[in-house]
């Protein structure tokens, strides 16, 4: 059914911290690994070892250079489906394969009924949907619908694969419809924003902006201590064992 639910009980989504994302691609590879055998499996690749490799991925990590000179910065920018509240990708679908779940707001494609007309990809301003050339259907982020409710997994694993994989904690998962949830608080605290809200699709996923840049005036503390804490060694340099290890280190280093 491509007509949208009036409301959804939850608004599950991601909050992505552009300040701490390091562009390591762990979320993208973890996503691909989980989802190539998950809900919308497979995620096929074409010409994977040839001259023109490409394939269906549900998460793409861009890196941008923003600003000029001293105020310039690198921002890593993960891009995936934003699970919009009123997504055009769903309403343009002629078959009902694309739908938004009334229970949790997740936007899904039914791979059993999708005809692969690609119109949803034309309707999405965020480039979030990708066509699977081998499977003949559209693929998109499922918010790991097959993980988050999966009771055979450990509780800490019941989050999207990208969130679980992120080594810097730049990805957060939760109910953005609940103003008391951790993700909603994070968005309020850090000034989370929507991508191109002018389209009116009301993205659920939010992005947290990079924090203000620190320089000599804002990062140095009063006593000019270096930012990295000095390692305090409790070893007494005159002790016999310490001298032994210093000697051993020298010998082994030859």
């Amino acid at each position: 059914m491509t007509t949208l639910p009036m409301t959804t009980a939850k608004k599950l989504g991601l909050v992505i911290d552009l300040d701490t994302c390091v562009g390591c691609q762990a979320c993208a590879t973890s996503c691909k690994e989980w989802n190539t055998s998950g809900y919308s499996a497979p995620l096929s690749d074409q010409d994977p070892y040839g001259a023109d490799p490409h394939g269906a991925w549900l998460n793409r990590i861009h890196s941008y250079e923003v600003g000029e000179g001293d105020t310039g910065r690198t921002v890593h920018f993960p891009r995936s489906c934003l699970h919009c509240e009123t997504p055009a990708c769903v309403t343009v679908c002629p078959t009902g394969a694309s739908y938004k779940r009334a229970s949790d707001g997740i936007v899904l494609v039914n791979p059993e009924t999708c005809i692969g007309c690609k119109l949803c990809s034309w309707a999405c301003p965020y480039g979030a949907r990708e066509y699977d050339y081998a499977h003949g259907v559209m693929k998109k982020c499922t918010l790991c619908v097959d993980r988050i409710y999966n009771e055979t997994l450990e509780p800490e694993d019941r989050v999207p694969a990208c969130v679980r994989a992120c080594p810097t904690g730049a990805r957060h998962f939760g109910d953005l419809g609940d103003s008391d949830s951790q993700v909603s608080k994070l968005v309020a605290e850090r000034g989370g924003f929507d991508l191109m809200p002018e389209f009116g699709y009301k993205p659920v996923n939010k992005y947290l902006p990079p924090r203000p840049r620190r320089d000599a005036t804002t990062s140095a503390s009063g006593d000019k201590k270096p930012a990295v804490r000095e390692v305090e060694s409790d070893a007494d340099p005159s002790a016999l064992t310490t001298r032994f290890f210093t000697w051993a280190d020298k010998v082994l280093s030859r």
Binding site: L18, G23, A28, D52, P53, H54, G55, A56, W57, R60, I61, H62, S63, Y64, E65, V66, G67, E68, T71, G72, R73, T74, V75, F77, R79, K118, S121, W122, P125, G127, E130, Y131, Y133, F193, D194, L195, M196, Y207, P209, P210
Partner: peptide
């Protein structure tokens, strides 16, 4: 599109993939 315009001019630095994906081929 990126929401980063407030920090200055946005330029692509590293692409997410080495060859065009579906979005680039289609759009």
């Amino acid at each position: 599109a990126t929401g980063l315009g407030r920090f200055g001019q946005v330029r692509p630095l590293d692409p997410p993939h080495s060859k065009p994906n579906f979005v680039m081929r289609e759009m």
